[in-house]
Computed example of a mutant assay.
Amino acid sequence: MSILINILLMQDVTMADTFRADGKIYVVVAIISVILAGLFAYLFSLDRKISKIEKEIKS
């Protein structure tokens, strides 16, 4: 198992280096951040709706 991890860590990450050199890494990070923020907002909204339905069922 540790041999596999060592092989993966020793690989060159040329795509990430290219994005970083071109300044596009910030665009990638921004897009991922927006997607995660939207996902968390959706989950929070869904949790509130489910809690409201559970309260209605109990009463």
Rank of each mutant, 00 (worst) to 15 (best):
A37S: 11
K24G: 09
M15E: 10
I25V: 06
I32K: 03
M15F: 06
T18D: 13
V27M: 01
T18E: 13
A41I: 13
D17Y: 01
A21F: 01
V34E: 05
V34A: 05
V34K: 03
L39M: 12
G38E: 11
V13F: 12
M15Y: 08
M10Y: 03
G23K: 08
M15P: 00
G38H: 07
L8C: 06
D17W: 01
I32C: 04
D22K: 02
K24E: 08
Y42A: 10
L39H: 05
Q11P: 00
L36T: 14
D17E: 14
L9Y: 09
T18P: 00
L39I: 09
V29K: 13
R20D: 03
A21N: 09
A16I: 12
L9D: 08
A37I: 14
I31N: 07
A41F: 05
D12Q: 11
V29S: 14
D22G: 01
A37T: 14
I25L: 14
V27T: 11
M10F: 02
V27I: 09
V34Q: 05
D17F: 00
Y26M: 02
S33C: 09
G23A: 05
A41Y: 06
D12E: 13
F40K: 14
T14I: 08
I31G: 03
D22L: 03
V27K: 02
I7C: 07
A16F: 13
D17R: 11
A30R: 10
L36K: 08
V34I: 10
I25Y: 00
V34W: 04
D12G: 05
G23E: 09
V13M: 12
F40W: 06
L36C: 09
V28D: 13
L8A: 06
I35P: 02
I32F: 01
A16M: 10
V34M: 04
D17C: 08
V13A: 09
L39P: 00
L9C: 04
I25E: 00
M15Q: 08
F19A: 01
L8N: 10
I25A: 04
L39G: 07
Y26F: 09
Y42D: 07
I32N: 03
